[in-house]
C-alpha cells in the first residue's frame, strides 16, 4: 500500500492492521484511539502548543512517521538470503598484500586466531561494515558473490552481524521470559510466545544449571547468561552472521552451543584459542600484523586428535566436579 493512501484510512482499520503505529505515537508522549477519522486528521488536530511542550512539531512528527512506516513496510519484505560471504584480501599493517580470497557459507564455522592487537577486531569490523576497499586494510566483502547493497551498513533491522562476547552482560530489569518477549516484539515476529518457549528450552539445555522463566536476567549466572544469549541469537536474531569472541570459559556446553548456531544456518566466525573449539571449526584464519597470514583447513589428523582432546577435556571436567563436591585429588 502507498503511504498517501494509508493516511486517508480510518484509524480503526489502520491501528488494527499496523498495531506498531500506536506504539510509535505513544513513544512521543501522545495518545491515539481508534475511531473513524483518518490518520491525517489525527495529525491535523494535534495542538501545536502541546506538541511544542513535547519537543515536537507537526512537520517533524509527520516526517518521522513517514520514515517509520516506510521502514516497517520494508521489514515485511523478505530479505535476500545470504548464501555466501566472500572476503577478498587487502593488506597488512606493513602494506603487504594478503593474497586471500575466502568464501564462507551458512553452517560453516571459521575460527580467527592470533595474539591481542594482531587485527582480529579489524577483520570482524571489515565484515560488519561490508568493507569495499574503504577501510585501512583495503579488504573487500562480497555477499552472494556480489557487491552488497549499502543497506547492510546502516539498517538496524537488517544487521549483517550479531555479536557475542565474554564481556557482555544483561542490564535490563526484566525476567528471562519478559526479556525474550520484548526482543521478539521489537523484531515483529508473528509468534512471540512460541519463540519464548523455544529459546528458554534451548538455553536451559546449554546451561550447566537450569533457570526458570521468571528468573530476572540480571540474576542469571555467567553460564546461564551466555546460554540465553546464544539461544536468543540462534532463534531471534535475523543477522546471518554470528561473531563470537572467546566463549571458552563461559561455563556452557560449547559443542551444543556451536551446533545450535550451525543448525540455524549461521555463518559463524569465532575468535578463540581453545583447541577443542578451534578443531571444531572448518578452517582457521591466522592473523598477524593486521593481515590474514595463513588459512589452515582442519585435516584428518587434526580431526582424529579432536576426539583425544575431548577425552582430556572430559577428564578435567570430572576432576572439576570432584572438587565441587568436596573430594580430594590425591588419586587422579
Amino acid at each position: 500500500m502507498r503511504l498517501t493512501e494509508l493516511y486517508q484510512q480510518p484509524l480503526t482499520a489502520i491501528l488494527a492492521e499496523h498495531p506498531y503505529i500506536e506504539d510509535f505515537i505513544t513513544s512521543f508522549g501522545l495518545t491515539i484511539t481508534a475511531n473513524n477519522s483518518s490518520l491525517e486528521h489525527y495529525l491535523d488536530q494535534l495542538n501545536p502548543d502541546f506538541l511544542e511542550d513535547l519537543g515536537l512539531s507537526r512537520e517533524q512528527l509527520q516526517r518521522s512517521l513517514d520514515d517509520f512506516l516506510n521502514g516497517m513496510l520494508a521489514l515485511r519484505k523478505p530479505l535476500d538470503r545470504v548464501e555466501s560471504l566472500t572476503i577478498i584480501g587487502g593488506r597488512n599493517k606493513s602494506g603487504e598484500a594478503e593474497h586471500v580470497e575466502l568464501t564462507l557459507q551458512p553452517g560453516e564455522v571459521t575460527c580467527i586466531v592470533g595474539p591481542t592487537g594482531s587485527g582480529k577486531s579489524r577483520l570482524l569490523a571489515d565484515i560488519e561494515w561490508v568493507a569495499q576497499g574503504d577501510t585501512p586494510t583495503g579488504r573487500k566483502i562480497l555477499i552472494n558473490d556480489q557487491i552488497p547493497d549499502s543497506q547492510w551498513r546502516f539498517s538496524t533491522e537488517h544487521k549483517l552481524v550479531a555479536q557475542l562476547s565474554q564481556n557482555m552482560n544483561f542490564v535490563m530489569d526484566l525476567t528471562a521470559e519478559e526479556f525474550i518477549q520484548m526482543h521478539a516484539e521489537s523484531r515483529l515476529v508473528t509468534n512471540p510466545q512460541e519463540k519464548v518457549a523455544q529459546i528458554l528450552e534451548q538455553a536451559n539445555m546449554l546451561a550447566g544449571e537450569q533457570f526458570r522463566p521468571d528468573t530476572p536476567v540480571t540474576a542469571l549466572s555467567g553460564g546461564q547468561s551466555r546460554a540465553l544469549m546464544i539461544a536468543d541469537m540462534a532463534f531471534l536474531s535475523k543477522s546471518p552472521i554470528a561473531l563470537i569472541d572467546e566463549i571458552e570459559n563461559a561455563g556452557i556446553d560449547r559443542k551444543k552451543a556451536l551446533n545450535l548456531l550451525i543448525r540455524e544456518e549461521k555463518i559463524v566466525l569465532m575468535a578463540t584459542h581453545d583447541p577443542i573449539l578451534a578443531l571444531m571449526g572448518d578452517r582457521r584464519l591466522v592473523i598477524k600484523n593486521g593481515g590474514i597470514a595463513k588459512v589452515i583447513t582442519a585435516n584428518e589428523a587434526e580431526r582424529c586428535n579432536l576426539q583425544r582432546l575431548e577425552e582430556m577435556d572430559n577428564q578435567l571436567m570430572a576432576l572439576r566436579n570432584r572438587i565441587r563436591s568436596g573430594e580430594t585429588l590425591e588419586q587422579l
Binding site: 562476547s165 557482555m168 542490564v171 535490563m172 520484548m182 521489537s186 523484531r187 547468561s225 536468543d232 541469537m233
Partner: peptide, 14 residues
C-alpha cells in the same frame, strides 16, 4: 560491548 546482543537490538529499535 558490555550489553547483550538482544539488548542492543531492542535499544536500537527504540
Amino acid at each position: 560491548d558490555i550489553v547483550s546482543q538482544a539488548e542492543r537490538e531492542v535499544f536500537a529499535s527504540r
